[in-house]
Design a binder for these strands. Structure first.
Length: 316
DNA sequence: CCTTGAACCTGCGGGC
DNA sequence: TGCCCGCAGGTTCAAG
């Protein structure tokens, strides 16, 4: 049953056989990747890879040499997430790493269907079920490594603490923000500072924390406790929404509430703030769109005096 | 070291 | 209808 749920949920963009729904884009930041991970883990755990077909030699990067052969014959033990990366742990000690980029999409299929545009990887399992990776923009990619290489993998080694883990403490965040002049919103999107916070949830978290996204990071540092709480709340709410849509899907029959997850500010320029009704505003920071409420997230010059207290001298 | 901006690639919606 | 433009979840890289 869950298999059907997953197939539908993950095949939003290229579902063909009974597609009557509008196409929805899903946005692979941490909550979305975590929801995908949950679904894939439930559907694929224990399955043996029989065949891997690549429609091209590269996505964002070339597939590693012998990629298909390294997967074939292995059993999927479990699927983990680190930042926005998926790690498929395989029997034999191999790890299949995957990133969804901007438009990557895994769909699970009970039987082979006619290939769709941008289907780049088709994996057939021993039980004849299939997993298809579709990615129009090809910002996604895949890699393969031995499990002992995970910690030192070039793309994983520099990633900051998981925001929902213990390593992401107010003290840590304050230290990190204090050393930066860049706008706090840009800082939160830096994967070396904290893992998995992307363009949407950076705006959402700052709204919850009532902080102006333009505030220089070092001036936001005193509010690190609020920021940690707000980041976690924003991410957890979205994950919960994804989880509930997984459960509810069977009853809804086509709509995934997950994709209707309501954002407080993202994408809502000109619309009323849900808290104060002021018009949500938009600006560009580091080339990306930022959304904020000018009333609930007041100007830096007005927040300066709100500093709780002077920072205590550090050390012994 | 930090910071900024361009680049990667396709699809879509708005304006004309 | 169609063309052109800007924009979109992420990350890497070069240059300042």
């Amino acid at each position: 049953m869950l298999v059907l749920v997953l197939a539908e949920m993950l095949a939003q963009n290229n579902y063909t056989s009974t597609n009557t729904n509008t196409t929805t884009h899903y946005m692979p930041e941490l909550p979305e990747v975590e929801t995908v991970r949950t679904g894939l883990d439930a559907a694929l755990r224990g399955k043996t890879v029989a065949r891997v077909q690549l429609a091209r030699a590269d996505l964002r990067f070339p597939f590693p040499p012998g990629f298909a052969k390294k997967l074939e014959g292995s059993k999927i033990l479990r699927i983990e997430r680190r930042a926005k990366y998926l790690l498929f742990r395989l029997s034999g000690g191999g790890v299949w790493l995957s990133h969804l980029g901007m438009s990557g999409n895994f769909s699970f299929q009970k039987k082979a269907q006619s290939p769709q545009k941008h289907d780049h990887v088709v994996i057939t399992f021993a039980d004849k079920t299939l997993l298809v990776f579709n990615d129009p923009r090809r910002f996604g990619f895949m890699d393969f490594m031995a499990e002992e290489e995970v910690e030192t993998h070039k793309l994983l080694a520099g990633i900051g603490p998981e925001p929902l883990g213990n390593g992401f403490s107010p003290a840590y965040l304050e230290e990190q923000l204090s050393a930066r002049k860049t706008p706090v919103k840009v800082a939160l999107m830096d994967q070396s500072l904290v893992a998995g916070v992307g363009n949407i949830y950076a705006s959402e978290a700052l709204y919850l924390a009532k902080l102006d996204p333009r505030l220089p990071a070092h001036r936001a540092a005193p509010f690190s406790a609020e920021l940690v709480t707000s980041i976690r709340r924003a991410l957890e709410a979205a994950i919960a929404s994804g989880g509930s849509s997984l459960r509810d899907f069977v009853h809804i029959g086509g709509e995934t509430g997950y994709f209707q997850h309501r954002f407080q500010v993202y994408g809502r320029e000109g619309e009323p703030c849900f808290s104060c009704t002021a018009a949500i505003r938009q600006l560009r920071q580091g080339g990306r769109a930022t959304f904020w409420c000018p009333t609930c997230q007041p100007n830096p010059s007005k927040t300066a005096h709100l500093r709780p207290r002077k920072k205590m001298a550090k050390g012994a």
